[in-house]
Design a protein around this nucleic acid. Structure first.
Lengths: 330, 330
DNA sequence: CTGAAAGCGCTTACAG
DNA sequence: CTGAAAGCGCTTACAG
């Protein structure tokens, strides 16, 4: 900026005015400055600006894995809001590793981002209390924070799972298995609650042998399916707690003749093209991202209520796999 | 840092030493400083550090759209390399808008990122020459830069398309249509070249009525398919130039009885589960991201050859849709 | 309409 | 092993 000032024959402050489009510079002066900027290929140094203003014009996004379609769509939505607010987005995947989450969050705070949107992995977020007090708003998405009062935007996991399971019940099923993620994960617990609630609502007794929680690994899923579908009182329908599990289940089911009815939580790109079409409880990942980011910027603009909890509805999309009736009993 | 120094009864410099893990601090002193840091909840301000050191410890990634699976997988790979180098990632989608690309690139440069990885959208990248000269390396991915000498990492578009079309030829097809993206897009041109090369190699005459270039819009695709599949000398096989087109085509084909053989460029999550399985020419989006980011850090570490052009191989994955023979002629 | 001075919070280069 | 001074490139607050 000094060089530009020298070349244009003005002071530093005048260059600053031109660069920032502040009023009160004679057109002729501004013109000279602009030319000097172009000649020198000057580009304002944002770190200096940040240091002085205290504003990074950047927000951080932490999630499990950008390459997962659910999160990549969410990321895109956050990106859009961030852009509308003339900010830049800093991102990081933490692979559900609590330490990595904290590492990322701290790195972003050291960088003095204006705020944070995060899909939490950790089991204790009290480490963020100090940052929030220091004026860095944090909005959680998809899962709530633990030991911390902060904004959170969630999908209606209980209601969505209940709808999905109820749909199977309405199609005549009473032996419905639930395959879900590890219970350590908030959404897995919520969806299991929805499953139980649907059964209870229909007066169907809970059978713990029909509930399988764990990672989406082909071998484990195959073993579970073998058991569920061949045990004396076999399951006639499956409800899958998330898209990764649904994928593995679909693949394992591909070879089998008597396929159970199936409803999955989370929608897929090609879900309508497989045969039968996959019936799903669709979440709104873009909505989650958009609402969370918008709330963050509202906080940044001064909104200071108590932490909010926003729940977004899910939608049941029947495509065939969830409408198959149970086999006739003999 | 001043507060920490005061509380620990040491100088600023000593605090800096502790924070940065520099040697030459008595354990007892370091201990006092650490306690002061913890008590005050001190977090180093990276903008100040950046200003002084000139290093952002951050790199920028610009691409078309993170929510596209191809790019989200690429993003994840870049992220991984960035993390291994103790950097943070700044991202932005430009929706194939040249102005937006430049806007993002400039914003990232003002922020003094250490380097840039980009899937270009613009038709002129000379605006980056100054930045590169100023020491900010830029690596292009998926498409080469225009009017600029810079590193680029590409998929083997020509070879991949040639393999895909040749595969159809080997299965007996001679009337093979090519549906590709707009010719303004580099990869679309390359893949068309591969298509032509495969035909030429088999001595099959080029028929321009079988080549359709355009956006992946259902209405346009349907019209093209109606024409291609019903014209006197109808196409018996289709080669789709990218995943978005393939999706639309699959959807349009879903209702039809006489389905042509089909090979798509780009792999899909559920490509093996649709029926028939989708035969694809798979790119390696993670490889593209990894190689590009690694090259960027090599540049940052001082590598100073001439700009490189790295081409990554593609793989043909037969799954059924590309192996169907043409209908018997009468 | 324009500018001189101070300072944001660190690190660098040097001295002791 | 520890510290005092200068400076990175801007903006803020003020003066003229």
């Amino acid at each position: 900026m000094n060089d530009v000032a020298a070349r244009a024959g003005v002071s530093l402050k005048t260059v600053s005015r031109v660069v920032n489009g502040e009023p009160g510079v004679l057109p002729a002066t501004a013109e000279r400055v602009s030319r000097a900027i172009a000649d020198l290929g000057f580009r304002r140094n944002d770190s200096a600006r940040q240091l002085r203003t205290g504003r990074a014009a950047g927000i951080g996004l932490i999630l499990e894995d950008v390459s997962d379609p659910f999160y990549s769509v969410l990321t895109r939505a956050v990106e859009q809001v961030v852009r509308d607010n003339d900010c830049l987005l800093l991102t990081g995947s933490c692979d559900d590793d609590p330490d990595r989450e904290q590492e990322l969050a701290m790195a972003l705070c050291e960088r003095r981002v204006d705020g944070l949107v995060m899909v939490p992995a950790a089991t204790d977020h009290s480490y963020l209390a100090h940052e929030i007090r220091a004026g860095v708003p944090v909005v959680f998405v998809d899962r709530p924070p633990i030991n911390l009062a902060a904004d959170v935007v969630l999908a209606d996991n209980v209601g969505g799972a209940r709808d999905g399971v109820r749909h199977l019940i309405n199609n005549g099923h009473r032996r419905i298995a639930y395959l879900g993620d590890d219970l350590a994960i908030f959404t897995a617990r919520e969806r299991l609650t929805g499953y139980r609630s649907a059964l209870a609502g229909a007066g169907i007794p809970q059978d713990e042998s029909l509930v399988v929680m764990g990672r989406a690994e082909p071998v484990a899923v195959r073993a579970a399916l073998d058991r569920l579908l061949s045990q004396p009182n076999a399951a006639t329908a499956l409800f899958c707690g998330n898209n990764r599990l649904t994928t593995v289940v679909l693949r394992e089911l591909a070879g089998r003749v008597d396929r159970p009815a199936l409803v999955g939580f989370d929608d897929f790109e090609l879900a309508d093209l497989i045969s039968p079409g996959l019936t799903v409880v669709a979440q709104d990942p873009a909505g989650l991202g958009r609402v969370a980011a918008t709330l963050l910027f509202d906080r940044l603009a001064g909104l200071s209520d108590a932490p909010r909890r926003v729940v977004l509805p899910t939608v049941l999309i029947p495509r065939g796999s969830g409408e198959a009736p149970p086999p006739a009993t003999f």
